[in-house]
Design a protein around this nucleic acid. Structure first.
Length: 590
RNA sequence: GGCCCCAUCGUCUAGCCUGGUCCAGGACACCUCCCUUUCACGGAGGUAACGAGGGUUCGAAUCCCUCUGGGGUCACCA
């Protein structure tokens, strides 16, 4: 039996790629509108790396009058394929990335996204299609059944390793009917392997350039698993062809897989899409960004603080001990958030939804994501998806992995919020609160909510900041805690020596308390006027000397929105009650 | 380890293809000062990079080679 398969050892043809690079892109954009796709495996959440891939694929197609397709790669039966498995679709929609074809999805505004003529878009529903092509390859002798067990394969791999070689599976001759029957009788199930051509394979990549894999690097890989499902390699090739995909933009981890896809395309007589492989996104510490990073942070906090049992109301004791017992176990999201809060640690944002929860704007996230691995050139940094769509091209995609700098993201978000129309800011905050901070919508009437927005916009870095920092607005007056820290003591003048006759912060607070009680008008302007007049007379005109004690009195700490706004927000009765409690509390301080 | 790819401030990057205009530009971060009722914002200034070594050239961040470093991949996962 010859190991050479003459039917398809022909030189690898490049289809419509067989012309120089520049002409190719020109040609593909002029002759056929590009079709790109985003093809994730099922997941409830969209990872930022995936979001960037989707964003680029979307921008590429839409900027050239093409189509953007979503396909779910659920050929692994071990992964679930229920409705929750496409939870990530809402993340895409939130980012403003809409697909022309793919799973159906109803956006919050009622628009139905998805569907299309090339479905189904779940690979698990396309088995009949794959089997047709599998059959074709089998009949043509381009694929064959292989009967090796996992143990046998493992042994071969070990033997190869002992010889310091990479293991490559190759065709070992025909299996006779008798052998086949014997395998079957043993209960063995065959896989189908592709008979790879024995030649060098040159991958052409619009981002990374050409790369030639030497002969033998691509072995006879499995194209149908024992369970009857196609492997990723096979499904992806068939689907890209059938869905008319012209440009494949995907993560760099697929780069060498491309060779497998190319030989498959040749064997099936398929067209060859243009490939572009995107570098990965890393954490600032060089590790790969991963869902497990959240658990890592929590485990470290638990360990550092020697916490021995789950804080009240976080996770159950069973979950806790299981989680601590096995570093591979991930806490479910809500529990992780509660635990993070209880331990006072900030969980790293990994998924798109994490950033949404933290109060980032979708347009900023897109902008920033695009900047990690692509640049429009020159000094342009801030842009929206419309711009990206207009300008995005594979020629400016970075080859090197980028570290995801949340600090810079925050700075971008801050700029966007600071520059936002106040009405829009309030609208977005309300939306955010409805989803993540409902208690604020319940506790604050519309005018108070509006005032909070006005008072916090210019100091907010995220849509969550107006709420996160101002929990004191919601607590009952007699439950407000006053923080006993250096700044508080200093502002109140606790334990500080002072010149004869000079009033301490606490003295100011006492005096102000009575002035406030008798104020005729509880408005920002009136309150400021009142305090300014007092300060001129008793605090050497230093407004800070009276503002800080007041701030502590009503908010419990030295940080709050502008004090006059804060007073109005809290209201006179509550402010006075709080100040009284603060005065009483400070008496307990040495 | 085999194979493949990559390499500019701490970070994201511009410049590289078509060597000189680059003793390398922008942004974030950092430092100093200013503003200030807290926090934050804002304003002015500053520190900071072509991984190393060889070539080619009148001239190299830009072209070539070697080394070093980093990444990806070697599944019946995608």
């Amino acid at each position: 039996m010859s190991t050479v398969i003459p039917t398809f050892t022909a030189v690898c043809t490049f289809g419509y790629l067989a012309v120089p690079e520049r002409q190719v892109s020109a040609m593909t954009t002029e002759t056929l509108p590009p079709v790109t796709r985003f093809a994730p495996s099922p997941s409830g959440h969209l990872h930022v790396g995936g979001a960037r891939t989707a964003l680029f694929a979307w921008a590429f197609a839409k900027g050239r009058g093409g189509r953007f397709v979503i396909r779910i790669e659920d050929t692994d039966q071990k992964r679930s394929s229920d409705a929750a498995s496409v939870g990530f679709l809402k993340d895409l929609e939130w980012l403003g990335i809409r697909w022309d074809e793919g799973p159906e999805f109803t956006a919050p505004d009622g628009t139905v996204v998805g569907g299309g003529p090339n479905g189904p878009y779940f690979q698990s529903e396309r088995l009949a299609i794959y089997n047709r092509y599998l059959e074709q390859l089998l009949v043509e002798g381009k694929a064959y059944e292989a009967w090796d067990t996992a143990e046998e394969l493992d042994a071969m791999r070990k033997a190869a390793m002992a010889r310091k070689e990479a293991f490559r599976y190759r065709y070992r001759g025909a299996v006779s009917d008798a052998e086949r029957a014997a395998f079957l009788a043993e209960g063995r199930q065959p896989v189908i392997r592709f008979r790879s051509p024995e030649r060098d394979i040159t991958i052409h990549d619009e981002v990374l350039g050409d790369a030639t894999l030497p002969l033998g690097e691509v072995d006879d890989f499995v194209i149908r698993k024992k369970d009857g499902f196609p492997t990723y390699h096979f499904a992806v090739v068939v689907d890209d062809e059938l869905m008319g995909v012209t440009h494949v933009l995907r993560a760099q981890e697929h780069f060498t897989n491309t060779a497998k896809h190319m030989v498959l395309q040749d064997a099936l007589g398929f067209r060859r899409p243009v490939y572009g492989h995107l570098s990965i996104i890393k954490n600032p510490d060089d590790s790969k960004m991963s869902k497990r990073d959240k658990d890592k942070v929590l485990r470290k906090a638990v360990h550092d603080r020697a916490v021995t049992e789950p804080p009240m109301g976080t996770v159950s004791v069973e979950e806790w001990s299981q989680w601590l017992g096995d570093a591979n176990i991930q806490l479910e999201l809500e529990g992780a958030i509660r635990l993070g809060e209880a331990l006072g640690v900030q969980l790293p944002e990994i998924n798109v939804d994490d950033f949404r929860r933290s109060g980032y704007l979708p347009e900023v996230l897109c902008n920033f994501l695009a900047l990690n691995g692509w640049s429009p050139g020159g000094d342009i940094e801030k842009f929206d998806n419309a711009f990206l769509r207009e300008r995005f091209g594979l020629d400016r995609v970075m080859k090197t992995p980028a570290k995801f700098d949340r600090v810079k993201l925050l700075a971008f978000n801050t700029d966007a919020i600071t520059g936002m129309d106040p009405v829009e800011f309030a609208r977005r905050c309300r939306e955010h609160a409805a989803r993540f901070r409902p208690e604020f919508l319940e506790a604050l009437d519309p005018s108070a909510f509006a005032l909070l927005m006005k008072a916090t916009q210019e100091r907010s870095k995220t849509l969550d900041d107006p709420f996160r920092a101002n929990g004191f607005l919601l607590v009952a007056d007699d439950e407000l805690g006053f923080s006993d820290d250096k700044n508080v003591r200093k502002a109140l003048g606790i334990g500080a020596a002072r010149a004869d006759g000079a009033r301490s912060g606490l003295d100011h607070l006492r005096a102000l308390r009575d002035l406030l009680a008798g104020a005729s008008d509880w408005s920002q302007a009136a309150l400021e006027q009142l305090a300014t007049a007092y300060a001129a007379e008793h605090a050497g005109g230093k407004i800070g000397a009276v503002a800080q004690p007041l701030r502590i009195g009503v908010s419990g700490s030295t940080v709050s929105p502008p004090i006059w706004d804060t007073l109005v927000l809290v209201g006179r009765d509550r402010a006075l009650r709080r100040i009284d409690r603060c005065i009483a509390w400070s008496a307990t301080l040495a």
